[in-house]
């Protein structure tokens, strides 16, 4: 099952820590956003295989944008 990790607020993309094909644990930080001068780590809420990363460093996201898609390991 594909699980989408979504931005919960508008922000700049500061660091991207995973790439497509990576296996991640639940709670592992995927991306660090920066908004209102705060670092906002975006963690995987499920374990699985990262099938796509929708952001790049220096870019920006709006609330609701997909940051990454994780294929959940059953």
């Amino acid at each position: 099952m594909a699980h989408e990790v979504v931005a919960d607020m508008a922000a700049n993309v500061w660091k991207v820590l995973v790439s497509e094909g990576a296996n991640v644990e639940a709670g592992e930080t995927l991306v660090i956003l920066e908004s209102m001068k705060m670092e906002i780590p975006i963690d995987a809420d499920v374990a699985g295989l990262v099938t796509s990363v929708g952001v790049e460093e220096g870019g920006s996201v709006q609330e609701g944008d997909v940051i990454a898609v994780i294929a959940v390991v059953e």
């Binding site: 919960d8 607020m9 908004s35 209102m36 705060m38 906002i40």
Partner: peptide, 10 residues
């Protein structure tokens, strides 16, 4: 709560 939405007021 700085862990959620940077603690900003929405």
């Amino acid at each position: 709560n700085s862990r959620i939405k940077a603690g900003v007021l929405f």
